[in-house]
Amino acid sequence: MPLPFLTADRSFEAADDIALPHDDRARWRRPYRPGPWRVGAAALWLLLASFVLFGAVIIALTASPASAGVVFALALLVIVAALRLLRMGVWVSARGLRHVDFLVTRTVPWKRIVAVRTVQTPVRWLGLPRTVQGQALVLVRQDRAAEESAPLLTTHNLDFLGRVSAFDRAADTIEAWAAEYRRG
C-alpha cells in the first residue's frame, strides 16, 4: 500500500530562482545544527526555569512582592542562560567568523584570518577538564600566527559528541567559507 505522505514533494525544489531570506550571505548564520547534548541541556535549564517561575507565582500570591520579584529575576536569569547556551558556536557571514562562547563573543574579519583547519589533538570532553583524543577546528589569525588559539569546534563538544560525520560536514563548510572569503 503506497503512503503518499512519506514520499518527498519535490515541487518546491524546481523554483531555484526564489531567494529565501536565509540565503543572504551578509547575515550571520551557524553552518550546522546545534547538537542533541546542547539542546537537551538547554531544555533542562528551561524546565528548571518553569519550576522557578511557578514558585515565583506561588510566592507572589502568599508572600511579599519583593521576594517574588527576586525569584522571578532568578527565573529570567536561567532563561537567558539557556538561550545563550543555544546560541553558542561558530557563526559565519561575508564579514567574518564569529565565535560565540557562553560569556564572550569574538568576531574576526576574513582578512585577518590566515587559515581555518582541522587538526588531530587532545580536546576537552563536553567542556570539562578531562581531555580525550579528537579533532578540532582551529583558527589561525594574522596577528597571532605563532600562538595556538582555542579550538572553534571539537568532536567532543556539546554539538558533535558521537556525531563525527556532522563535525566533518561543519568543519568542511567553515573551511570553505574561509577559503572563499580570504580570496575575495
Results as ranks from 00 to 15, higher is better:
133 Q>F: 03
89 G>M: 07
56 A>I: 13
79 I>N: 01
68 A>F: 05
129 P>T: 08
95 R>L: 13
145 A>P: 05
110 W>E: 02
101 D>K: 10
138 V>C: 08
131 T>N: 05
39 V>Q: 00
81 A>E: 05
146 A>L: 09
48 L>Y: 02
70 V>T: 06
65 P>W: 11
138 V>A: 06
99 H>I: 11
73 A>K: 09
84 R>A: 12
119 V>Q: 13
41 A>P: 08
45 W>F: 02
80 V>E: 03
72 F>E: 00
83 L>N: 13
127 G>F: 01
106 R>L: 15
132 V>A: 12
55 G>A: 05
85 L>D: 02
118 T>N: 04
53 L>C: 09
64 S>H: 07
130 R>C: 03
140 V>A: 08
94 A>Q: 10
46 L>T: 08
66 A>L: 14
116 V>W: 04
113 I>N: 04
144 R>M: 09
61 L>E: 08
88 M>A: 09
54 F>H: 15
82 A>V: 14
90 V>R: 04
46 L>P: 05
126 L>K: 08
112 R>I: 01
140 V>D: 03
88 M>C: 12
62 T>D: 14
58 I>R: 15
64 S>P: 00
135 Q>E: 15
113 I>D: 06
135 Q>I: 05
129 P>Y: 15
115 A>V: 05
139 L>V: 14
101 D>M: 15
40 G>C: 07
128 L>C: 15
139 L>Y: 00
108 V>G: 05
38 R>K: 11
99 H>A: 11
79 I>V: 13
66 A>T: 15
49 A>C: 08
113 I>C: 00
96 G>I: 01
96 G>M: 01
130 R>E: 11
135 Q>N: 09
92 V>N: 01
120 Q>C: 02
63 A>N: 12
83 L>I: 08
127 G>M: 02
113 I>L: 08
77 L>I: 13
110 W>C: 01
134 G>I: 04
97 L>M: 05
107 T>V: 12
128 L>K: 14
111 K>T: 00
44 L>A: 10
138 V>W: 02
112 R>H: 04
142 Q>W: 02
142 Q>P: 06
143 D>E: 14
65 P>T: 08
95 R>N: 10
100 V>D: 06
117 R>C: 14
145 A>H: 04
38 R>M: 05
69 G>W: 10
127 G>I: 09
64 S>M: 00
62 T>E: 14
125 W>G: 01
122 P>Q: 00
146 A>D: 13
71 V>Q: 08
57 V>I: 14
76 L>C: 11
106 R>N: 12
62 T>H: 15
77 L>N: 14
81 A>Y: 10
83 L>E: 11
134 G>W: 00
86 L>Y: 07
85 L>F: 12
56 A>F: 04
57 V>R: 08
53 L>I: 11
95 R>V: 03
122 P>I: 02
141 R>T: 10
78 V>Y: 02
37 W>A: 07
79 I>K: 02
43 A>H: 09
59 I>D: 06
68 A>Q: 06
99 H>E: 09
143 D>T: 09
131 T>F: 06
51 F>C: 14
46 L>D: 10
99 H>K: 10
140 V>M: 07
